[in-house]
Design a protein around this nucleic acid. Sequence first.
DNA 1: TCCTTTACCGAACGACTGGTCGGATAATCT
DNA 2: AGATTATCCGACCAGTCGTTCGGTAAAGGA
Lengths: 199, 199
Amino acid sequence: MDSGVKRGRPARYTPDELLDVVVGVFIARGYDATTMDDLARATGLTKSSFYHHVSGKEELLRRAVARAVDALFAVLAEPSSSRGPAVDRLEHVVRRSVDVLAAELPYVTLLLRVRGNTAAERWALSRRREFDRRLSALVQAAIDEGDVRADLDPALVTRLVFGMVNGVVEWYRPGGAHRATEVADALVRLVFDGLRSPP
Amino acid sequence: MDSGVKRGRPARYTPDELLDVVVGVFIARGYDATTMDDLARATGLTKSSFYHHVSGKEELLRRAVARAVDALFAVLAEPSSSRGPAVDRLEHVVRRSVDVLAAELPYVTLLLRVRGNTAAERWALSRRREFDRRLSALVQAAIDEGDVRADLDPALVTRLVFGMVNGVVEWYRPGGAHRATEVADALVRLVFDGLRSPP
DNA sequence: TCCTTTACCGAACGACTGGTCGGATAATCT
DNA sequence: AGATTATCCGACCAGTCGTTCGGTAAAGGA
């Protein structure tokens, strides 16, 4: 048990603070292009000090993508994601996905960039596929209930809609031109009602 | 002048064939994680033979992203992109962008992944920004002409719509479940008319 | 104060990286 | 056949990578 007493020399970073810095560098330079020395210098530590806190480069990636995956699955676990008409549940998941994406921007950004080179990345990819499956089922249910047009392939619609959602990481910046709720709002309206002017 | 006469030992690859192989590896492994030896082995050549054909890693990236950029700008140069109502021009650009994306899948995929680490990547990013500006102007014109709803920020709409378009590279595969025109069709209908069932 | 615990650092390691070079090889042209 | 020319390759290099290790610095507990 951790009794809460602090012993020894105090650390400059908590594990989470360290991860914040690391993920920032991963995003800026790209995971593969990022050197352990880049990470160490970004924290103000030397490479060897840095290794005192982490077991290696891949552990950092694993922790980062796990945080993003957890945040996204938490959306599916919310009550509004499983109660009520499917079309409302779908809207809720879309809107909340944008929220999570904005709140956990660097982590989700990293998640969306993994390509399966390492074990951590392959695990992340399999979780993303599971997430997609859940979404696809939601779209299908909304079609079955007659609230979403049936003339479009549900699998295709799922990919297109969540392609739009995921694309938000490419340009959304906290403190930028748009707030997260504005983005979520515009996206939901666009997806459900389309671009065309009402006649 | 190249008079067309072939002298000396014939090459195993034309420059374009070589680029095809290279881009495939770039996509699979990621640009930074790809080693010159990976590329050489993928072509069946040794590293030193490979260097006979190319000046280095970055030249390959430059040629690849240039091809994608050219293909996308060619869409804007088509007559239907500059004639008629803005909403029709917008639809044409969206539809044709999907076509180009499917036809030049690996090249556009690579383009969409560059992060500005090298000079070639920064050039690509600036071209993408120019492309976005042109699209944004198109959306604005469609709003001004009253064919696109005015209650959404045009800049936001542009990013969302082309986020959806760009997201297609993540899952579209030639010979897969959907043809490129199906995808383009579904995307255009989704974007302009929305997901909701007509009452 | 001394002891324990934790954070930190300098220096080095083996493996691998992008890139080079001199020469061998296989075609075409005369 | 012999000269010419582009293609291909084995061996190598200097630099960088992720990682390790022995030791020092700084804190709390006794």
